[in-house]
Write a protein that binds this DNA or RNA. Structure first.
Lengths: 302, 302
DNA sequence: CAGTTTTACGGTGACCGTAATTATA
DNA sequence: TATAATTACGGTCACCGTAAAACTG
């Protein structure tokens, strides 16, 4: 048999108040319960902690030494518990998020702003890197969660769908297709196309689109960054096909986005995390927040 | 607080061994018990402390933080408990003893030597002061226990009898009374008497002895210190009457002690301590040791 | 399929609260 | 005598251990 936290709390309360009855009241217990708790602990330690009569309760020298050190220990444990509860209640914490640059620029800022407003104690760190490094960072535990679209994924990683992200057509506002009620892939024939390079996952989807409608894909320009593609479109050098979330990046430019059908081609934007590690409370909450923000930024109807 | 030390110990053991079964073995418990303990604590904290599959058990980030801090706290409490047990088992401690100079010189050294041999971890401090300061020191708690003979005593102080101390006759070895089979107070008539001054409690007892046999007390010399009296006796200047424990101080001098009867006059040598404070384990042990040492130094038969 | 954790469940013992007793100023 | 601590005692609930089930590699 060992000693218990309640016994130690009893000793501390009695020591502080110099009175079993009042200590019992503070602890929400009864006086006999405290008496027994102190008695049991004294028996356990084989030392009397209090000199007591019915009129006076006072620590012995052994009791003082015990009180001083035990109080420290209890305090330390209380802090450990408090810290854990803070993490659970999102009063503290830290999330490390890995996301591709465009997503990081387009939707994360809003999500972070709202998340931090709700949970000011939680730090959010973003790392805007390429897909391969996102997967690596999450798999290694360096990042708590990753965001993006991943075709084939390490089975050790779990996917939490955020939203379906369909490819859209981006063109200047005065372009004929901008006025089309329902532009389709076939309408792109003959248009000068700004394409991403083959390094991009998006490029593959675009190729699938052209294949589906049995058109050759002949890029007028090939660029690496989505922002560049939009700039070229704004300059009137052609049209491009990009994920929905590029809408955010198109804001303020002379570029409009239009849903692109026949076929609708899209990918799941997901949050990934190691499947053998549960999401931290903060990471879970952020994922929820992110999902809400993304849905709100969803493509407006044509 | 609705969590328990056992739950925390469970978490620490599982964290260290990365395995519920082995942790249970170390704690002398069963694996389901640990599983439940960890589960309960996690529910209490509202945070998952371990990511676990049937193959792998690993701390979460919250778990690591909790483990680090809780381990400190538990360690602190263990130290408090260990310290208290050390005090109880006399592996540590400190006793402050107040005793009159002769007692401090005559019997305490031997008692301390034997006590320290048995309990090397306990410090013993001696303060050789007068009776009034002994009482004051013990009453104030500055000294743990006081030794001496006290006629009337503060009711707040408790007396633990060590031995009865009868007055003895001290004379040179070749003195006629040294050969007497049973010297009495009446035999002192006409002997030059070395007396202590009236400041001494002993002097009062000597006067009572003379009064009892209706002899006048006419000191040949009056001295303050027992050691001085013995020196005068050794020099052949007279005889003196002193407590039994002066025997120890007479050792090695040309002085012998003889029981003094008709009447036997004595006092209780007692240990005193505040009655509302229990003796510390070390003080109790020292009192026992002192009692044994004093009995061993008891007056040898004539 | 083997090893490990989780769930289920029945029993026992620890702790608590009420009530009576003892002790102190 | 009044107040507070201790002792006595009965009940309940938490915790433990056995056994069965679920899960992972």
């Amino acid at each position: 048999m060992r000693f218990t936290l309640r016994q130690i709390e009893a000793v501390l309360a009695v020591a502080e108040l110099g009175n079993f009855s009042r200590a019992a009241e503070r602890l929400g217990s009864t006086q006999p319960a405290l008496s027994q708790a102190v008695r049991d602990l004294e028996a356990e330690l084989d030392v009397r902690l209090f000199d007591r009569t019915t009129r006076r309760v006072e620590l012995t020298e052994a009791g003082r030494a015990f009180r001083d050190q035990a109080a420290k220990g209890l305090d330390e444990i209380d802090r450990a518990v408090g810290h854990a509860r803070d993490l659970a209640a999102l009063r503290r914490g830290r999330i490390h998020i890995a996301a591709p640059p465009l997503l990081a620029a387009a939707v994360l800022p809003q999500a972070i702003v709202e998340f931090r407003a709700e949970h000011p104690g939680v730090d959010v760190a973003v790392e805007d890197v390429g897909t391969d490094r996102i997967v690596a960072g999450v798999a290694s535990g360096q990042a708590d969660l990753g965001i993006g679209t991943f075709q084939s994924l390490d089975p050790g990683l779990e996917r939490l769908p955020i939203i379906r992200d369909d490819l859209m057509l981006f063109c200047p506002p005065d372009h004929p297709l901008a006025a089309s009620p329902a532009p389709g892939w076939r309408d792109l024939a003959g248009e000068p196309l700004i394409a991403l390079t083959r390094e991009s996952g998006i490029r593959l989807l675009v190729e699938i689109g052209f294949e589906t409608v049995e058109q050759p894909l002949r890029p007028a320009h090939e660029v690496h960054q989505i922002a560049t593609a939009l700039a070229l479109v704004a300059a009137g050098l052609g049209v491009t096909v990009l994920p929905t979330y590029a809408l955010a990046a198109a804001e303020g430019r002379a570029v409009v986005g239009r849903s692109l059908a026949d076929p609708v081609i899209g990918r799941e934007v997901v949050v990934i995390h190691p499947s053998d590690r549960a999401l931290s409370p903060a990471a879970r909450a952020f994922t929820d927040r992110l999902r809400r923000v993304v849905r709100r930024l969803s493509p407006p109807g044509p």
